[in-house]
Computed example of a mutant assay.
Amino acid sequence: MSTVSVGCIICDPQNPIPVTTRFQARILVFNVTVPITIGYPVLLHHQSLIEPAVLSKLQAQLHKSTGETIKKKPRVLGNNSCALVELETTRPICIERYADFKELGRFMLRVGGVTIAAGMVTKIR
């Protein structure tokens, strides 16, 4: 019990949950005061875990409803945009693809106590 803390996930040893520091996700950006760029620091809220993270890649800007690629490798993400990004956490975290396990594939991104984006994990690196 001394090694279990808030944000830890207990799983079956025969079917372990993936542990990673990098993953690809589809995010929906809400209202942001400063446009999101590569290297943007955020707090990743995943279940009860709060972990510092950085947007390491902006892979594509997507159409909100259809999910089609509007622009590859955008320089910035503004208000009410949808995008495919890569996030990198400071420590390894347990995370699942949204398609495999919805509860462990969702997260929120916050900055300064304000939620700036919600996301779904699409690929684990």
Results as ranks from 00 to 15, higher is better:
M1N: 04
S5P: 00
C8Q: 02
I10K: 06
C11W: 06
D12P: 01
Q14L: 14
N15S: 14
N15K: 14
P16Y: 08
I17E: 03
P18G: 05
V19C: 13
T20V: 15
T20D: 08
T21N: 14
R22D: 14
F23E: 02
F23K: 03
F23D: 05
R26N: 10
I27C: 06
V32C: 07
T33I: 05
I36D: 02
L44T: 07
S48N: 12
S48A: 12
E51A: 14
A53Q: 08
V54H: 08
V54M: 08
L55I: 15
L55P: 08
K57C: 10
Q59L: 12
Q59E: 12
Q59H: 10
Q59D: 10
A60V: 10
A60D: 08
Q61L: 15
Q61W: 00
L62E: 09
E68G: 07
T69G: 03
K72D: 11
P74T: 09
R75K: 14
G78K: 13
S81H: 05
A83Y: 06
L84T: 04
L84P: 00
L87Q: 02
T90H: 08
P92D: 07
I93A: 04
I95G: 01
I95W: 04
A99C: 09
D100E: 13
G105C: 07
R106P: 00
V111N: 03
G112P: 01
G113T: 04
V114Y: 01
T115Y: 00
A117P: 01
M120I: 10
M120E: 09
K123D: 11
R125M: 06
